[in-house]
Amino acid sequence: MNYWSWETFSEALPMVLQGLGITVGLTFSCYAFALLFGFVWTFLRRIPNKLIHWIVTWTMEFIRSTPPLVQLFFIFYAWPMIPGIGVTLSPFTSAILGLGLHFSTYIGEIYRSGIESVDKGQWEASRALNFSVFDKWKKIILPQALPPTIPMLGNYFIIMFKEVPLASTIGVAGILHMANTYGARNWAYLEPLTIVGIIFLLLSYPSAILIKKLEVKMNTRFDKKAALENVKKGAVM
């Protein structure tokens, strides 16, 4: 048996690449959903009601500690079967919902850590200056809480990119799905799957380096000195 054939490789390459747009598009969509929904978690958790807090915390914990693959299956296969609220969703939409929701619980934690890292004096200062709740968040808290979380958020982009191939299991035609389709048709899996591996390596490695750089930059910008200056600025404002 021939182990490796460049012929198969070059034949499989264009087919696999067809799925690239979907994979990248799905990554961005899931990420956007997770970024948005992360806020929902963060603010739900801030509701000063013990019961709600408890429910939200354990819902997040449940979503976070069960496999995204099963969650995908649930949304794609089980959701339509639920009487009353069941809707059939396309594989692509299901993937956005499933993976987006799963990762939004992580993103929510990141937001929370960012908000908690804002100095207590900032909250007090904005109260002393009689800001409205909306202005307090928009002008004081979030501008300080979010920038330091950017590297962590960036990391999650890469993590999500690597998890997106899960969607091939419910039929989203990304690169992994294309590779499997090619494999099934020609009974040659090694080459197309190798291509998929290389594509992931080529895309995620440079992004990882980029994020590392971003992290260094952020760390120098948001060191303790900067935090102290912010306190001063906040007090003067």
Partner: peptide
């Protein structure tokens, strides 16, 4: 990881 899993699944017996 799913890619690696598939890859190993097909590649180990083949290679």
């Amino acid at each position: 990881m799913i890619v690696q899993l598939f890859w190993l699944y097909y590649a180990i017996p083949m290679l």
